[in-house]
Design a protein around this nucleic acid. Sequence first.
RNA 1: GCCGAAGUGGUGGAAUUGGUAGACACGCUACCUUGAGGGGGUAGUGAGCAUAGCUCGUGGAGGUUCGAAUCCUCUCUUCGGCACCA
Length: 815
Amino acid sequence: MPEEDFPYEPGNIEKEVQNYWSENETFSVTEDPNKEKYFCLSMFPYPSGSIHMGHVRNYSIGDAISRFQRMLGKNVLQPMGWDAFGLPAENAAINNKVQPSSWTLENIESMKTQLTQLGFAYDWKREFATSEEDYYKWEQWFFLQMLEKGMAYQEEAEVNWDPVDQTVLANEQVIDGKGWRSGAEVEKKRLKQWFLKITDYAEELLAGTELLTGWPEQVKTQQKNWIGKSEGMNFTFEVNNYENSINVFTTRPDTIMGVSFIAISASHFLSKARSKEDDLIRQFIEEQNKVKQSEADFAKQEKEGIYTGIDAVHPFTGKKIPIWIGNFVLSDYGSGALMGVPAHDQRDFEFATKYELPILQVIEGPGETESTSEAFIEKNKLINSGEFDGLNFEEAFKAIEIKAKKLKCGKKETNFRLRDWGVSRQRYWGAPIPVLSDGINTFGAKDLPVKLPTTVAFQGVSSPLKDMDEFLNVEQDGKKVKRETDTFDTFFESSWYYARFASFDSKDSMIDDRAKYWLPVDQYVGGIEHAVLHLLYSRFFYRCMRDLGLIEGDEPFKNLLCQGMVLKDGTKMSKSKGNTVDPQGLIEKYGADTVRLFVMFAAPPEQSLEWSDQGVQGANRFINRIWRLVNKHIDLGIPESGSLQSSEEAINKLRSKTHKTLAKVKDDYLRRHSFNTAIAAIMELSNEIPKEFLEENSNKECRRAVNEAIEAILIMLSPITPHLSQFLWWKIYPSELILDVGWPEIEEDLLEDSKLTIAIQVNGKLRSQIEVASDTPEEEIKSLSLADEKIAIHTETKKVRKVIYVPGKIINIVV
RNA sequence: GCCGAAGUGGUGGAAUUGGUAGACACGCUACCUUGAGGGGGUAGUGAGCAUAGCUCGUGGAGGUUCGAAUCCUCUCUUCGGCACCA
């Protein structure tokens, strides 16, 4: 039995093919102006220690796209690297007394072994880790360029402070307002930090989203909402007995006559002023300042406020408007103050109801009476607004703007939700921010890189840099200065790594001319969780690099594919839930091709994938079937090449299926990225090879048709199961690289069927089917349908009112 | 809370532009094969019923249409993001 002669042994096969790739540097590429380039990038991983299923899925998708593009003849660059800075390395250092640097390097080594075992077509010569001096040196340089251009600035900002551990905490380290290690109540603390002026690019980033035709609509929408451009007006309210007035921003100037209170944030200057005069107000503000909340917590909290005891003056009516401090007012959006219009804003409504503030309806609602359960937030005609009554939103906006201008109490304004990017982190394992201070002035470091010491002693949990004399105290231009001990946000590294892959070994510049050939990335593949921050920061950095003349174009990622999560039992795989599946064991048991085939077959890439051990077995079974099929075919002797023309129906049926499959799979790979349906189509084709065509006495024509089908199957599978495809290909064409044989030519005339099956419906319900020649005229199909006996049963007692024919598919008889 | 998605047989999913719902797999059932198996093969498999067929059926409730998984309105559930996890 052939299966016993040649059992499928993935371990040996995969090793052999991988050795060939590595010895021949199959995936090493250089710039070739005569070839169309294709840069395919998967989001690089944080080296946590071992590959998880999410990585396997992400990288299998990227690899399939890369290999397919190469089959189309393109010069494909697919690099891989390591997002090597970050918090987990520090935690490992604290818990296990290891150096973050060596912990990271060990993790990289083991993860690289795993990626190699999976057979991904990476150009490994371009590999780098962001924790390498050669890498972060250039981002330090880049930061100094930004500093020079005024794009980077220092400002005080709030952080979570653990008073016991004496350290800054990340949001994820704060659990229910307490430090995760110490359990101490977290405090808000203000620290001087570095910011990048991403808001300078808000307008351009927003406009640019429209041009990203290769991005999923949902990601573009999320980015647009994140940037959050809103057009409205700024009104100035004078305050009784205070010199300063209060500015409020509103997107609904049409509701100005419905203002019944002003709400300011706890950090507003007026709040601070009043807290010095009033104990209750001071207590309220202190309470608000306790914990730095995430926006989610902020929005979920019960609305609370306190009257400041002072009033503003309505700019149009001169009426007294009470000023309240509210916990729902964002301090860093607009001017940290808002005009409360409870009748037409839900948050204002809830606040007004709680504190019994008047609710003044100024927009015509659905009913005559005032709504008592919720605000009416839609735009409509103005009422109870004096001279503005009867105007619609646009008219009112204009009229109110003119009046405000005249009274010098307000003007049109555009506001963005987007805030400047704070890049300072009070942590050790990151790229040092290359600035120095003499106690008065802050300036850039001249000697780059500012090296991060790799041998450090952790005293508790705070950054060891703060206690390292040799790091801290240096000389520049003969002056004794102190270094900045903060490091960069790790998003800093991941915002430009794609560009460095193009100039991976450039010693004299951050990015050289090679980037002009490779950039932008043609296909970026990664998790949806990066839809906003990472992708927006990267788009921002790309523009900054462009403005420095380093690269061309505006956008880093031409096409984006966001793959879904890998779930088990309906929830995300995680160590804490204990529902993880280790890819390593599966690779050892079934081979990389089986694992890759399963993750590509189980779900479309952008959907979540439910893990199934039985599904993996199914994938393995299919691979075994292909293995036996091809080996049997080879045992029978590969037919000499010759004409594929035949008059036999079974042969033409197989050939037609082969070519239809080639066309479908190509479309699925190229346009739809629908790998699961591509695999299903390949399975169908393999199921349709007649057994009689694989017998000793099968004729030459049959054998040639089978050969054509088998070659197509191996080629079509090769982006997903590259080892199997290559190994079997060698049995037909020794020493030929299957990746470079090209996609088989699709014979158009085999795609057309000579017969069509038309479904017949009566009143939209399927009642019968007829088979007709494909050139049958419409009238004949209609009369054939009406004559059909199954149809007659449903139409005989009724009058046919209409017959709708959808060419080649369906006919609907309306009675 | 705000922003963005998803919901189809026992399970994963298919239906590409509003046109035959359930392709392809998994599982299950029966039979054949094997000393054995996470082997191989053949057939069947949405539910119900008065079973040549009919009725119901894509989270739920309405609507548009000759025709809706697909479009619209409302609603429920699950998931991603919310700026110091990456």
